[in-house]
Design a protein around this nucleic acid. Structure first.
Length: 1234
RNA sequence: GCUCGAGUGGUGGAAUUGGUAGACACGUUGGACUUAAAAUCCAAUGACCAUUGCGGUCGUGCGGGUUCAAGUCCCGCCUCGAGUACCA
């Protein structure tokens, strides 16, 4: 019978299952150890040999730890929500639950056959309501949380609300997307809906219109990590960008902590690196560029000979600075992904000529801390302070034209309308904007409850265009007119066609009307006592002072960075997404009067740059085609081309855009930006090499030192200048360059006040300068986006959300779990809504509609490791006791495909629960091992073209052949089973073979394991043939765990032979136990203890392949010694248990033990058995090994030297020459230099 | 392009801190046992030269360097793999 693996394995698998051998319970007498495998998705194809690789490794480690006295938690469960089951449902109508259940059963059966030591009582499935109840619960908590940057953690939203009630949001530091600053009064007077709208900008789970990866084939959005090269990871379908209302998780709030946490975990460097790249932190500066508002377009390049200088007739940089001080708008930030940093120099003393107090720069390197929004260049968004008169809170806030409630209710519309003007509106606007007709005109302005097309506030005159744009407004025009007139406005109307066809006449009419209208009582402003000479109708500086009182910013100068509107005159302005002002006059203080401000251009383009030092080298600017400023700045003559380009860019698929990266395209807008340091004019282009989603969607192009800018400049013949030279080199003519010059290090040239500085110094100096000038600030940008959390799918967790008055509310926790209902169809509805939208009763019991999206795949897998700690808890996610005991995962094993997605999301999830005080560890996974992928090894036959003749591998070059995949089951050691091949497929039935040495040798290649390549290896077949223990050993023996390696069954025989040999140490050919009780010899003990030591070390460092080798060596040596002694073989059985548990249990039992071996203490090695009497020294001459010399250990170095020199062998090699030097490393080597 | 990782016999791989390169296993060859096959066991197996025997030379992707000594450390390349991508 011999080694009967089949009987043994079935027997022990049954035993483990019946005795719940691996059940883990909290046991405070033992240290815990938590080993986890990444959550598998049970696919229909079942396991192939690649899947168990990690499971075997973690199982070995778990079993090893149990032998070491640890209480090991080693659970397994299923990530059961997933697209494949749903796609299958769509195709066949089979409920995904049924498919999933079936797949899980198959998975379980396969897993059981491999002999894993999972605690199956802890199994979880994401699709189980008892499980997803807690996913929903966490979502509710996220919804009711905000991120407080002051405490640097998530807090209950009620804390935020309390602050709003005391102080509005001015002093709140939060990760948010709120664009306005408001007061406590404002908050208190807001309606519930308005409050909810505001809170949505703060919640950690929030609803917003977001640009998403939409996959039309799959009918759903995809996360960034589910998109590979513009195609869906699953299925490879095209993906496009689309604006959709979506749930998102504000993971960006945690960007810095996610980055910092990487320093505390024991993960491989490549994975950490991937996470760092994914988070994508870059330090740099936000810099404002004004848009040039010249009367006539000028030639493109304004740079004079002297780059620091400004030509006559142009505004000087000083002018710009002045203006900027007063008018530069707040710095909006890209989706709150930015943090303000206070920039410091590495060597401030050496470099900095600025005053002592430059805004609180400290001496200890970079001092990064977010500043209060109100004082900063607004990292969080485009806000204004809308402040009411505090002395007179009852006063109606002085919104010009409307009250704040109405304003708030309407502002989204207003934005929308401004973004999408009709042609006539746009045309008229172009001609009346600013003060082109001598009066200040605003468009899409709120007056009372209405939004009027245009208004001249100073003349209380409304200009309306009658088109279809107002169709959505239900009220009759008559009423509208009445109400507006009641407010003291007069209305003049034009038809769209008037504007389009007789523009000049229309403008003339308006101008004449305004000229003739007399306003008797112009609004007077309630100014403070001493405004420092600021005129009426302007912003006063008191605001700034107030700001400073609130919290002095460690920042050079807040001036000009925010617009503080002191009640009466000002509406909260609308900033478009790209942070420049459409309307300026409420900001602009220096005109004579509101109707006649000159030179009022206050449009700015904010760019993010990591290299502010190269500002002097910026020769043009580029906006993303989607940048909203584009339509505003494009000159009439460029309009057609620019629009054509935008249309073209929009219609390109993501994939096209990515694959055609090298094609340079772009269009000049006709507008110019002004370099804030040089005053030079920079032509503004649009090009799709600038991405709307990163930074501000706008760049300053430095072609001299950026290869993309360089290529663009060359292509469109834009100027290139050099501002950095390598140390000790001279500047060269950029005209001769083939590419931009690397500028990471070097010296600044042609760069005004930073010329001569090192790059690093220059960056710091420039940032301080722009901070001082109030046109920018040091900042950090993250690439990480908030995680989109909705899927337009059926098979996922329902959101515990219902809608009231259009706003989302969470279900009460007592109503959880909100179960996924049955649906008729798994397809989207005819309107394109998710399947749940087709249900008429998908409502709360009060009748409010429930959310119809479902959660994405990563929802359920983000916190599963916590649920495993206490999986059957019906009251809580997990108990505090369980969490305090199991804490976090000590060893996490899985593939690196989860490096960017799952591992980021679950770290975020854990950190959130940590902030709530639920999870006791800041990081969920202490040690991470990424097992390599097992690749397929395909076999090939070579068919002679056009025949049924197949030629053996080494003869193939004599023929014209075609290479064909052949099923690896028909090939053994590269020799084809020719009969099997003929029987394999009908088309090969008449195959003839041209053999070599009587065999047909196949060619082979390492490829991805896939059905179509006929190289998939199913573990079941191998277990049947060799047993699970052999499979376990062989998968480990294949090579280092973390390395990718091809699967090749060639070596499995060797492992199988090893187990059979092991067996024969215990049993003879007649299955009789041949264990003796003789005392072991020194030699035998040495073999054993050498192995014990090696196995310990190898498991600890996850070097499982060398461990298997060590067992083989051990068994070979014991065989040689003909050792059958209990003293040796009992520890050996124990030693091999983690690797080959079935055979170990059987041997253990045969040795007379009862019960399982699994908790028995591991053998310890004893140095004394390893002590050597002598050591065989390799003796080298000049580093070349010549002979070996046996010497007793314990000799002194001098004795060794003598012994070597006296040996016969040495004399031969010395050739009579004296030894110049002798190196002796005890128990290592002897080297003689002659 | 950038970032990371890897290149060692016919094959998978070993060499843990700079110290005998190729452990262990597969495959191959020869042999034992057998009527035969399977299974098992023994021996050889990096390349080249030499061979009656002793032996010698080269050799860890390539080129340099450091060192008594380099697969291992340093500099410069090449190739393959993975991730990422107009990320400013």
């Amino acid at each position: 019978m011999g080694y009967d693996f089949d009987r043994i394995e079935k027997k022990w698998q049954k035993y483990w299952s019946e005795h719940k051998t691996f059940k883990a319970d909290i046991n405070h007498d033992k240290p815990k150890f938590y080993v986890l495998d990444m959550f598998p998705y049970p696919s229909g194809a079942g396991l192939h040999v690649g899947h168990p690789l990690g499971y075997i490794a973690s199982d070995i480690y778990s079993r090893f730890k149990r032998h070491q006295g640890f209480n090991v938690l080693h659970p397994m469960g299923y990530d059961a929500y997933g697209l494949p089951a749903e796609q299958y449902a769509i195709q066949t109508g089979t409920h995904p639950e049924i498919t999933t259940e079936k797949n899980i059963l198959r998975y379980r059966e396969q897993l059981d056959k491999i002999g894993f030591s999972f605690d199956w009582d802890r199994e979880v499935r994401t699709s189980d309501p008892e499980y997803y109840k807690w996913t929903q619960w966490t979502f509710i908590r996220l919804f009711h949380s905000w991120y407080n940057k002051k405490t640097d953690k998530a807090e209950d939203i009620n804390i935020l609300i309390a602050q709003f009630e005391i102080d509005g949001n001015a002093s709140v530091e939060a990760s948010n997307s709120c664009e306005e600053i408001f007061t406590a009064e404002f908050w208190k007077n807001a309606t519930e809906k308005e409050q909810q709208q505001i809170l949505m900008h703060y919640r950690l789970a929030y609803l917003s219109e977001t640009m998403v990866n939409w996959c039309p084939e799959l009918g759903t959005v995809l996360a960034n990590d589910e998109v590979k090269e513009g195609l869906s990871e699953r299925g490879g379908h095209p993906v496009e960008k689309k604006l959709m209302m979506q749930w998102s998780l504000r993971i960006t709030a945690y960007a810095q902590r996610l980055l910092d946490g990487l320093e505390t975990v024991d993960w491989s460097e490549p994975i950490k690196e991937m996470q760092r790249n994914w988070i994508g932190r870059s330090e740099g500066a936000s810099v404002d560029f004004e848009v040039w508002d010249g009367d006539e377009p000028t030639k493109v390049l304004p740079f004079g000979e002297d780059l620091g200088g400004v030509k006559e007739g142009e505004r000087t940089s000083e002018d710009s600075f002045k203006e900027d001080e007063l008018t530069t708008p707040p710095q909006p930030s890209p989706e709150g992904r930015e943090q303000i940093i206070d920039y410091n120099l590495n060597e401030p003393t050496k470099v900095l000529p600025f005053g002592e107090d430059l805004g609180g720069v400290t001496k200890e390197g970079q001092n990064i801390h977010p500043l209060p929004i109100a004082h900063q260049g607004s990292p969080e968004g485009k806000e204004r302070i809308i402040e009411e008169n505090e002395n007179d809170p009852g006063n109606t806030p002085g919104y010009y034209g409307t009250n704040k409630d109405t304003w708030f209710a309407n502002k989204d519309y207003v934005r929308e309308l401004r973004k999408n003007p009709t042609d006539a509106e746009a045309l008229l606007w172009e001609n009346v904007r600013k003060d082109r007709i001598g009066y200040r005109i605003r468009r899409q302005h709120a007056i009372d409850a209405y939004i009027v097309d245009f208004v001249c506030l100073s003349k209380k005159t409304i200009i309306e265009l009658d088109g279809d744009i107002h169709d959505y407004q239900p009220k009759a025009d008559k009423l509208r007119t009445e109400i507006l007139e009641e407010n003291g406005y007069s209305i003049i109307r034009f038809k769209n066609s008037d504007v389009n066809d007789h523009l000049e006449e229309v403008i003339k009419t308006i101008k004449t009307y305004l000229d003739n209208k007399i306003i008797e009582d112009p609004k007077v402003l309630p100014f403070g006592e001493d405004l420092g000479g600021v005129k009426e109708g302007t912003k006063n500086t008191e605001d700034s002072c107030k700001e400073d009182e609130l919290n002095t910013p460690p920042h050079p100068s807040p001036k000009g960075r925010e617009q503080i509107s002191k009640s009466n005159n000002v509406i909260p302005d609308i900033l478009d997404e790209n942070n420049w002002f459409i309307e300026e006059d409420e900001v602009l203080p220096f005109g004579e009067d509101l109707g006649g401000v000159k030179k009022t251009l206050k449009r700015t383009i904010t760019v993010f740059t990591t290299r502010p030092d190269t500002l002097f080298g910026a020769t043009f600017m580029v906006l993303a085609p989607e940048h909203e400023l584009v339509s505003q700045i494009t000159t009439v003559d460029r309009k057609e081309k620019v629009e054509a380009y935008i249309a073209w860019a929009k219609n390109r698929s993501e994939r096209e855009r990515m694959t055609e990266v090298k094609n340079i395209s772009g269009e000049f807008t006709g507008a110019y930006g002004i370099n804030p340091l040089t005053g030079g004019k920079l032509p503004i282009w649009i090009a799709d090499y600038v991405l709307a989603g990163y930074g501000t969607g706008a760049i300053m192009a430095v072609p001299g030192h950026d290869s993309r800018d360089f290529a663009f400049a060359r292509h469109f013949d834009l100027p290139i200048i050099q501002v950095v030279v390598a140390e000790g080199e001279e500047p060269t003519d950029p005209g001769t360059w083939d590419d931009s010059i690397d500028s990471k290090e070097g010296v600044m040239v042609s760069s005004g006040f930073i010329s001569g500085l090192q790059v690093k110094e220059a960056i710091g100096v420039t940032i301080r300068k722009i901070q001082e000038m109030g046109i920018g600030y040091g900042t950090i940008n993250f690439r990480l986006h908030d995680a989109i959390f909705s899927r337009q799918r059926y098979w996922g967790e329902p959101f515990p959300i219902y809608y009231k008055d259009g706003m989302p509310y969470t279900l009460d926790e007592s109503e959880l779990p909100l179960k996924l209902p049955q649906v008729e169809s798994y397809l989207p509805t005819e309107q394109g809504d998710p399947p749940l939208a087709a249900l008429t009763d998908w409502k709360t019991k009060e009748g409010y509609p429930l959310e119809t999206n479902t959660m994405p795949g990563f929802a359920g897998s983000s916190g599963y490791y916590l649920r495993y700690m206490d999986p059957n808890n019906r009251q809580n996610y997990f108990s505090a006791e369980a969490n305090q005991y199991w804490r976090n995962v000590d060893l996490y094993v899985g593939g690196d495909e989860h490096a960017a997605g799952h591992l980021i999301y679950s770290r975020f999830w854990n950190k959130f629960l940590y902030d709530l005080g639920l999870a006791c560890e800041a990081e969920p996974f202490k040690k991470l091992i990424n097992q390599g992928k097992i690749q397929g090894r395909s076999s090939f036959v070579y068919r002679v073209q056009g025949t049924q003749k197949y030629v053996s591998y080494n003869l193939r070059n004599d023929y014209d052949t075609q290479r064909l995949h052949v099923d690896i089951d028909l090939v053994e050691n590269d020799v084809l089973n020719t009969e099997g091949f003929k029987a394999w497929r009908d088309e090969y039935r008449n195959a003839e073979f041209i053999l070599e040495d009587g065999k047909y040798i196949c060619g082979w290649e390492v490829e991805k394991m896939s059905k179509s390549k006929h190289n998939v290896q199913n573990p079941d077949a191998l277990i049947e043939k060799y047993g699970a223990d052999t499979l376990r050993l062989y998968e480990m023996f294949l090579g280092p765990l973390e390395q990718d390696k091809p699967w090749d069954t060639n070596g499995i025989e060797g492992v199988f032979r090893f187990l059979k040999r092991l067996w024969r140490l215990y049993f003879d050919n007649n299955d009789q136990l041949i264990i003796t009780n003789e005392n072991a010899t020194k030699e035998e003990l040495k073999v054993l203890h050498k192995t014990i030591k090696k196995i310990h070390e190898d498991i600890e460092r996850f070097s499982f392949n060398t461990g298997v080798s060590a067992f083989m060596i051990c068994v070979n040596e014991l065989m040689e010694l003909n050792c059958h002694k209990h003293e040796i073989l009992e520890p050996l059985a124990l030693l091999i248990e983690p690797y080959a548990p079935h055979v170990a249990e059987e041997l253990w039992q045969s040795l007379g033990h009862t019960g399982s071996i699994s908790m028995v203490e591991f053998p310890q090695y004893d140095e004394k058995y390893l002590a050597e009497v002598s050591f065989q020294y390799p003796v080298s001459f000049n580093g070349k090994m010549r002979f070996k010399l046996d010497l007793p250990v314990g000799l002194s170095i001098a004795e060794i030297e003598n012994a070597v020199l006296e040996s016969e062998e040495s004399k031969k090699w010395m050739e009579g020459k004296p030894a110049r030097k002798i190196i002796v490393v005890p128990k290592r080597i002897i080297n003689i230099v002659i």
